[in-house]
Amino acid sequence: GSPLAQQIKNIHSFIHQAKAAGRMDEVRTLQENLHQLMHEYFQQ
């Protein structure tokens, strides 16, 4: 897949890990990143 698709997959797993660790501030930051990446992805 594209590097962007790979990045989106990575962030999904980072979010999963951050949630499991209870780091909600990190989850929020990652979700904002994910949102931006998704936006770029669909602009392609």
Rank of each mutant, 00 (worst) to 15 (best):
G1M: 10
G1I: 13
G1R: 11
G1S: 12
G1N: 13
G1V: 12
S2Q: 12
S2C: 15
S2F: 12
S2I: 14
S2Y: 10
S2M: 12
S2W: 11
S2A: 11
S2E: 13
P3S: 15
P3T: 15
P3E: 15
P3H: 14
P3N: 15
L4Q: 03
L4E: 03
L4K: 03
L4F: 03
L4V: 07
L4P: 03
L4R: 03
L4S: 03
A5K: 07
A5V: 13
A5T: 09
A5C: 10
A5W: 15
A5M: 13
Q6D: 12
Q6S: 05
Q6E: 14
Q6R: 05
Q6I: 08
Q6G: 04
Q6A: 07
Q7E: 08
Q7M: 13
Q7N: 04
Q7Y: 06
Q7S: 05
Q7D: 04
Q7R: 07
Q7T: 07
Q7H: 06
I8P: 00
I8V: 03
I8C: 06
I8D: 00
I8M: 04
I8F: 01
I8K: 00
K9E: 06
K9D: 04
K9I: 10
K9H: 07
K9M: 08
K9N: 06
N10R: 12
N10C: 15
N10S: 11
N10T: 12
N10A: 13
N10W: 10
N10V: 12
N10Y: 05
N10P: 01
I11C: 11
H12M: 15
H12A: 07
H12V: 14
H12C: 09
H12P: 02
H12I: 15
H12L: 15
S13T: 09
S13R: 14
S13F: 12
S13C: 15
S13M: 13
S13W: 10
F14V: 12
F14D: 14
F14A: 15
F14T: 13
F14E: 15
I15V: 02
I15P: 00
I15Y: 02
I15A: 00
I15K: 00
I15T: 00
H16D: 14
H16S: 14
H16L: 11
H16C: 15
H16W: 06
H16K: 15
H16P: 02
Q17V: 09
Q17C: 15
Q17L: 12
Q17K: 10
Q17G: 04
Q17R: 08
Q17Y: 04
A18N: 02
A18D: 00
A18K: 02
A18Y: 02
A18S: 03
K19H: 07
K19L: 12
K19M: 14
K19E: 09
K19D: 03
K19R: 14
A20T: 08
A20N: 07
A20Q: 11
A20S: 08
A20D: 06
A20L: 08
A21S: 06
A21V: 04
A21R: 07
A21C: 08
A21Y: 01
A21N: 07
A21F: 01
A21M: 07
G22C: 08
G22W: 03
G22R: 04
G22D: 03
G22Q: 04
G22T: 02
R23W: 04
R23K: 10
R23T: 02
M24A: 07
M24Q: 07
M24G: 04
M24T: 07
M24E: 07
M24R: 05
D25V: 05
D25C: 15
D25I: 05
D25E: 11
D25K: 07
D25Y: 02
D25L: 05
E26I: 13
E26D: 08
E26S: 04
E26R: 06
E26C: 14
V27L: 07
V27F: 04
V27R: 01
V27K: 01
V27P: 00
V27I: 05
V27D: 01
V27Q: 02
R28C: 12
R28Y: 06
R28Q: 08
R28A: 10
R28H: 08
R28F: 05
T29G: 06
T29K: 14
T29N: 09
T29V: 13
L30N: 01
Q31R: 12
Q31A: 09
Q31L: 14
Q31S: 09
Q31W: 10
Q31V: 13
E32P: 01
E32W: 05
E32M: 08
E32F: 05
E32A: 10
E32T: 07
E32S: 06
N33I: 15
N33V: 15
N33R: 15
N33C: 10
N33A: 15
N33K: 15
N33Q: 15
N33Y: 15
N33M: 15
N33H: 15
L34W: 02
L34N: 00
L34G: 00
L34S: 00
L34D: 00
H35K: 13
H35M: 11
H35T: 08
H35I: 12
H35P: 00
Q36L: 11
Q36C: 06
Q36S: 09
Q36R: 12
Q36E: 09
Q36K: 13
L37N: 00
L37I: 07
L37K: 03
L37V: 04
L37R: 02
L37M: 06
L37F: 03
L37S: 01
M38D: 01
M38L: 14
M38V: 10
M38S: 02
M38P: 00
M38R: 03
H39A: 09
H39G: 05
H39D: 09
H39I: 13
H39S: 07
H39L: 13
H39C: 15
H39Y: 08
E40Y: 05
E40T: 04
E40M: 08
E40D: 09
E40Q: 10
E40V: 06
E40N: 05
Y41I: 06
Y41M: 06
Y41S: 03
Y41D: 02
Y41R: 03
Y41T: 02
Y41C: 15
F42H: 10
F42R: 07
F42Q: 09
F42G: 06
F42K: 06
F42E: 09
F42T: 06
F42M: 11
Q43T: 09
Q43K: 11
Q43P: 08
Q43C: 15
Q43M: 09
Q44M: 10
Q44N: 11
Q44K: 10
Q44Y: 10
Q44F: 09
Q44W: 10
Q44G: 10
